[in-house]
Nucleic acid binder design. Structure first.
Lengths: 334, 334
DNA sequence: ATAATTTTTGGGAACGTTCCCAAAAAACTA
DNA sequence: TAGTTTTTTGGGAACGTTCCCAAAAATTAT
């Protein structure tokens, strides 16, 4: 491996000049010496040692991405979006999985410090958010939680999607609409209270009485969906549509309904949330509220670079979701 | 941010001593000074600057993972496996996506050089394999291709799985077994010729005549699977089972068969290859040859660290696959 | 042609570690 | 106790950049 000095010797200039040319910042270097240097560098196949550069400049052009699990398609998409954008800007991405475990947050936050990353893209947990206070680095939060933290945040406007989905069901003649929320108050930072508020507003707007039987509380998993199907199958006055908490529930519901001879969507319309890859493949294809996963990653990357380069103050971004209309909602107006 | 000198001053020792203690290699430093140093470091909240360290030692404790697309569950699992192992060993992972584009391989290989990574985990394309020659770094190839390259390789023993699947079908009474291969010779480095060899060996072993109608050549996608269903539905003497080229084909086949009123598995048994997440969720749940994705990542990480630390010469690993028995194979012996 | 100004170049220090070598301190030997 | 060996410590150089400042060269003005 050649260094800047080798290039300097070959080009017959000083290392300072070589540095000026090769670091891109070649103001005040005459065109002909610049050409000389570039030629010499090429001839040697010089490649810059970014460690030395970083040590001097205190910039690593590296971002760390701290997410729960890259194996989850949502996070994979976010990671991809982030990497794509960062790459364009000359940044690299260090990937790390937390599995929501506190000690890993600590560990990786420390890693960020030793490695000297220029910024942190992180999906925080409720307690790791506090650890961030001790870190003097640009930080962008991934997700909808922690609205009032002092950091920039990039999430999606799920509530608007919920509303849109509800209105879509109404337009298709549904008035007996079930809604699902989890046992726990928040799931991965989504405040489900808010979803219910949206739901109640919707009912009020259309003069529909709230029927508490239509508020379901199951686990956010396929098993939860199975359970939901069983509950619905025993109801005297079941809903005609379900707004599931997420796609997993919706899919569990679909699968179990098949066994219970409930036809989807004829007997029951379903809308999911997330648009996981399976949703467009199962039969029938699931109508769902699609989160702009990749865009979230891209935007987060864009924001953190802006923060790093001082072009932006911390802000909250809520990226629009999209109601992906497929085959699980029946029009029952006729 | 404090440096080693600050710690030294506080502990009243020299920077050398601090370095000795903090770099782990504290042979020849007395217990009491060691304690002093550790106390001082803790007191200041010292965190090591790994840039400076790397510059001096020429080791970054960083591996680059070059894969086609993290959004593909297969690669996400590989990445996860690799990261989990690397983390345990104190290494970090830089993630990069190629989309099989040549110029990105070049770009990222150069990145590996400037960043001074300690090793490269890469799923190469046919032409990028040549670029590796110019790189004097530990390299581990991901996947089954390029058997005769000089690099260590970690893949899976898919052929053995194919054989097992074939035998499993036979055991369930199937003799009219269709097999799928792509138009092209290789798909992502899998030599399909070999699959056919296995198939022919199987037929021979059980004295079954080769029926060339049972060799199908469709695209490795859901659309390919749809097409396959249509072909089969028009056959006079259709196979009773299909060994699909991958899960995507199998799923496309399942979905299209539903439309064509071909019952899976009563009318047609299906086995896929890959075990993508959807396979265990669709109805009916797909029996498939599961690749040890995560293990591949783990093993690759293990191997590259061994190569880096000089404990291992380049070798080929073929990790065993697993026939995941679910609901798409019918026993037709009775 | 000389002075003043601007442009271009080079030398040294610094970033924070680790490593080498020598010096100091401690432990042992006779 | 003095000499010898071993253990422990400290100082300086080095890794390869970038940045600061001054010097040299080129350009312009008088």
């Amino acid at each position: 491996m050649y260094s800047i000095l080798d290039v300097a010797k070959l080009a017959n200039v000083s290392k300072s000049t070589v540095s000026r040319v090769l670091s891109g910042n070649s103001y005040g270097v005459s065109d002909k010496t610049k050409a000389k240097v570039e030629k010499a560098a090429k001839e040697l196949g010089y490649v810059k040692n970014s460690l030395a550069s970083s040590l001097r400049t205190n910039k690593t052009k590296t971002i760390i991405l701290i997410i729960p699990d890259i194996t989850n398609n949502f996070w994979a998409e976010v990671a991809r979006g982030a990497q794509d954008y960062l790459e364009k800007k000359g940044y690299s991405l260090i990937l790390v999985n937390t599995d929501w475990e506190e000690h890993k947050y600590s560990k990786y936050l420390e890693l960020a410090l030793t490695k000297g990353v220029d910024g942190i893209l992180i999906n925080t947990s409720s307690s790791s958010i506090n650890q961030l206070k001790n870190i003097d680095l640009p930080i962008v939060l991934l997700g909808n939680a922690y609205l009032h933290s002092p950091y920039a945040r990039v999430g999606s406007n799920t509530l608007e999607g919920i509303n849109e989905a509800l209105e879509y069901l109404y337009k298709n003649g549904h008035k007996k609409i079930g809604i699902v929320a989890s046992h726990t108050d928040t799931v991965q930072g989504h405040n489900l209270e808010n979803r219910l508020t949206i739901y109640h507003d919707f009912l009020e707007r259309h003069n529909i009485d709230f029927n508490e039987d239509y508020y379901f509380s199951v686990d956010y998993s396929m098993e939860g969906g199975n359970e939901l199907a069983k509950i619905i199958s025993t109801m005297e006055n079941p809903p005609t549509a379900i707004l599931a908490g997420n796609d997993l529930i919706a899919i569990g519901l679909i699968n179990e309904c098949r066994k219970l001879n409930i036809d989807i969507p004829k007997d029951l319309s379903i809308i999911g949330v997330d648009d996981i890859p399976i949703s467009s493949i199962i039969y029938p294809r699931l109508t769902t509220i699609a989160k702009p996963k990749r865009k979230i990653g891209e935007k987060a990357a864009e924001v953190i670079i802006n923060v790093i380069e001082g072009n932006e103050t911390n802000r909250n971004y809520k990226l629009p979701v999209n109601l992906e209309i497929r085959d699980t909602v029946e029009n029952i107006t006729k």
